[in-house]
Amino acid sequence: MNAVFATGSKQPSWQTIAMFALGFWLSGSLIVDFVLMPSLYGAGMMSQAGFATAGYSIFWIFNRIELLCAALVLVSLLALRGTSNLYSHVRRWAIFLSALLLAIAIIYTYIMTPQMTALAVQLNLLEPVNEIPAGMIPMQGGYWLLEVIKLVASGTVLGWCYRDSRRLA
């Protein structure tokens, strides 16, 4: 225990924190998008009466983790603003992209997830669920568009941070 909290030990840098948060967030997004949701869809989740509640429960937790990671990345890059070896235009783009990532996480958490759940919730329990609600298709398209932007932006910022950390080493 002393080895972890020793006064002479080197504390993690903001760059390491940003890379860890981006890597964790990116891997979590890939697992949710390409493993969890397709397997639930393939298992017939959309035809079950409680799919909206289950989806909301999953995304409620994941959206809060996304907000935490996005905020941590933005704070880390802002803290690195004066000390990083990144070129000034790359540094500005990294901060812009991290602010965009935070905006996407806010859109997911407070706009898209509640709206998609409201569209999909079954209010009449006596009628079976036959199909996806009509308003859900454009929202899913918007979700996938934001998801592609998020994956490209986070991958770009992660690559810049990694290259910058390699230059420092």
Rank of each mutant, 00 (worst) to 15 (best):
M116Q: 08
A43T: 08
N130Q: 14
A18C: 08
S47N: 01
A54Q: 13
I106M: 09
A3R: 13
W14T: 07
W14H: 12
G155Y: 05
M19N: 02
G44Q: 08
F20T: 11
Q115L: 10
F62Q: 08
G142T: 03
A52C: 00
G28A: 09
M139I: 07
D33E: 11
S57C: 06
P114R: 03
F62G: 03
I95S: 05
T117Y: 13
L30S: 03
F5I: 11
P114A: 02
H89Q: 05
G23Q: 00
L102H: 00
T113C: 04
Y108G: 00
G8Q: 11
L125F: 10
S98R: 00
L78R: 03
A71V: 12
T16D: 05
F34P: 04
G155L: 03
M112T: 06
L86Y: 02
A3V: 10
N63A: 15
F5R: 06
G28P: 05
I65A: 10
V129Q: 07
L68K: 02
E131C: 03
E147V: 08
L125P: 07
K10H: 05
P133V: 02
S47R: 10
R163Y: 07
S29W: 01
C161T: 11
A118W: 04
H89M: 03
F59W: 15
L97R: 04
L40T: 06
T7W: 13
Q15S: 14
P114T: 03
